[in-house]
């Protein structure tokens, strides 16, 4: 990955949507080359719901993602106990383009939704979505399925990206997740993490193990996959690490999910099969 060539920044502790939009335009023109602004080639809007305990992890994952997926990223940090305000930090991260003076820029908008603003995040995010491009919602941690905040954000996005390995109650929580399959496409980074494991099992077919050992979410998904695809039942044993897999950074795993634009019926079937025999 190329390093960020330069970053333009604008902040306001009490911002309006209009001011944020104006700042986005202003930042692009601030670094013009011979009258021509840097390029903004966007392929999606990346919306992330980041509760305080996930802030650090979200920032780390985001590093470099803008270069791989030129986009507008809206980071929503809920702060329900603060005074009502919308605090914004707008960043224009620009990367070198080989052979050109102009840079390629990605926009990152950090929004602190304070007080009652945290209860209506969709009304803040929707005006800032790039028109006619897919919207991905990365929900950090375990979503409160059915909560007004979750419901309104799911309603405005094309794809929900979760990592069920972040949930304390997987696979039981899959039952709640599956309800959303007909409303929006769902990606699960835990499922992506099992890809090398599933490849190894597929290539070993028909010689399959009778037990799977690994972390709860990933193991439940692979067991559900074997049950739904091949009618094979396995015993699950818990362990900290995956038996097969590469040590890929979270940003790479999320990056892979941002390349997927359609529903994944194989994942959905695996999820459904993973809780089929749970009480």
């Amino acid at each position: 990955m190329a390093p960020v060539a330069h970053v333009e920044e604008w902040t306001d502790d009490c911002a309006t949507i209009g001011e944020i939009e104006a700042a986005l335009v202003d930042l692009r023109y601030r670094h013009a080359h011979g009258g021509e602004p840097d390029l903004r080639t966007s392929v999606l809007t990346h919306l992330a719901w980041v509760p305080p305990e996930w802030q650090q992890a979200a920032t780390e994952t985001l590093a470099g993602l803008g270069e791989r997926h030129p986009s507008r990223t809206l980071l929503l940090f809920p702060q329900p106990d603060a005074d009502d305000e919308l605090a914004a930090r707008v960043l224009l991260e620009c990367y070198d383009l080989p052979g050109l003076e102009r840079h390629l820029c990605s926009e990152v908008v950090e929004l602190r939704l304070r007080g009652m603003r945290s209860r209506a995040p969709a009304s803040i995010a929707v005006p800032l979505l790039l028109p006619d491009l897919p919207v991905f919602l990365r929900w950090r941690g375990r979503p409160e399925f059915g909560s007004p905040v979750f419901e309104q954000l799911v309603e405005v996005v094309d794809r929900l990206v979760v990592d069920s390995a972040e949930w304390p109650d997987a696979p039981a929580a899959y039952r709640e997740l599956a309800v959303y399959f007909d409303r929006t496409a769902v990606s699960d980074i835990a499922w992506r993490r099992t890809l090398p494991w599933r490849r190894a099992l597929a290539l070993a077919w028909p010689e399959l193990p009778d037990r799977l050992t690994g972390p709860p979410a990933e193991t439940a998904l692979v067991a559900g996959w074997l049950r739904s695809r091949a009618g094979v039942e396995v015993v699950i044993e818990r362990a900290d690490a995956l038996p097969v897999g590469e040590d890929r950074p979270p940003s790479d795993l999320l990056s892979d999910e941002l390349d997927v634009f359609v529903r994944d019926p194989i994942y959905e079937a695996a999820v459904a099969a993973s809780f089929a025999d749970l009480p």
């Binding site: 597929a202 290539l203 070993a204 077919w205 695809r229 994944d264």
Partner: peptide
């Protein structure tokens, strides 16, 4: 892994 035995695997899709 070789791919030959996996051709008929129902697990290959996706």
């Amino acid at each position: 892994a070789t791919e030959t035995p996996a051709r008929e695997s129902p697990l290959l899709e996706g």
